[in-house]
Simulated assay, not measured.
Amino acid sequence: MKKKILALALAGVLVVGALTGCGSSKSESSEKKTDDKKITVAASATPHAEILEEAKTLLKDKGYELEVKVFDDYVQPNNVVESGEFDANYFQHVPYLEQFNEEKGTHLVVAGKIHYEPFGIYPGTKKDLKDIAKGDKIAVPNDTTNEARALLLLQDNGIIKLKDGAGIKATVNDIEENPNNIEIVELEAAQVPRVVNEVAYVVLNGNYALEANYTVKKDALAYEKSDSEAAKTYVNVIAVKEGNENSEKIKALVDVLKSDSIKKFIDEKYDGAVIVYDGE
């Protein structure tokens, strides 16, 4: 009799265990399903997070919840995607992404090319490039990528000439011709808008121009055109960890950011300071 009771008891334990196991599996499946419908993106405040906020409703219509966190540096957004804490980030262009991967050993890839922010030459103490004179000062960003871009724009407008092949790694040491003996003032990017009353001209990228209350269409004396090599090279992207670029939710995110609705929002809000990338 005791053996029979023990056997029944053991059977009960097995049944309860099996039922508990089923419940756990169902819960895990439910959590995974929820995760598949939530998209977490690390972004810079302007214009990236603003564009993502506009995309929230469009993604909700597709069944996805978009969560955006703003970062004020250019390192953590990549680290949190590499670690898997975030699904994607939106703040950087391709050269920076490639350089970051090389230096940090990360495995980040482009999931979609969204927009570019044209560099512009803006007024300082002088309001027209025709007024440029010998010894004038022009402030440019001092980080490797953006300084090269600024110098290329100055070259495109006949102010300097760079050595052949200098390209996107150009520095002031690559200036071959400087007919007006222009002094290139190298500053941290955020500091450039603050010296407009001290130099003849400043060269700014899109987000810093916005923060300085400049718009490309109204204020720039010259800027990168949509078909320029710089526009193609410095397009801002949605970046993900390698292997996630073809997931359904990332595809949905990219599709929405490339939609006509977002293009219209960008055109109207940024007035040329942010331009939709029309390539693949």
Rank of each mutant, 00 (worst) to 15 (best):
K2Y: 11
K4H: 08
K4M: 11
L6W: 08
L8Y: 10
A11W: 08
V13L: 15
L14Q: 04
V16C: 09
A18Y: 15
L19P: 11
S24V: 13
D36S: 13
K37P: 00
V41N: 02
A43H: 06
A43N: 06
A43V: 11
A45E: 14
T46L: 07
T46E: 09
P47L: 05
A49P: 04
A49Y: 07
K56E: 11
D61W: 03
G63R: 07
E65Q: 11
D72H: 10
D73Y: 07
V81H: 07
D87M: 09
D87K: 05
A88S: 13
Y90C: 06
V94L: 08
E98W: 02
F100R: 08
K104N: 15
H107P: 00
V110T: 12
V110C: 03
G112V: 01
H115L: 14
G120I: 10
P123Y: 04
G124Y: 03
K127A: 14
D128A: 14
L129A: 07
D131G: 05
D131R: 04
K134P: 00
D136N: 10
A139N: 01
P141Q: 06
P141N: 06
T145R: 13
T145D: 09
E147Y: 05
A148T: 09
A150E: 10
Q155P: 11
G158Q: 13
K161P: 11
K161F: 10
K163F: 07
D164K: 15
D164T: 14
G167F: 12
K169R: 07
V172A: 01
N178M: 02
N181E: 14
V185I: 10
Q191A: 12
P193T: 02
E198N: 13
V202E: 03
V203T: 08
L204W: 11
E211T: 05
Y214G: 02
Y214D: 00
E224S: 09
D227H: 11
D227I: 09
K232Y: 14
Y234G: 10
V235L: 10
I238K: 06
I238H: 04
G243E: 08
N246Q: 14
E248N: 12
I250W: 06
K251P: 05
K263A: 14
I266P: 06
D267M: 06
V276M: 13
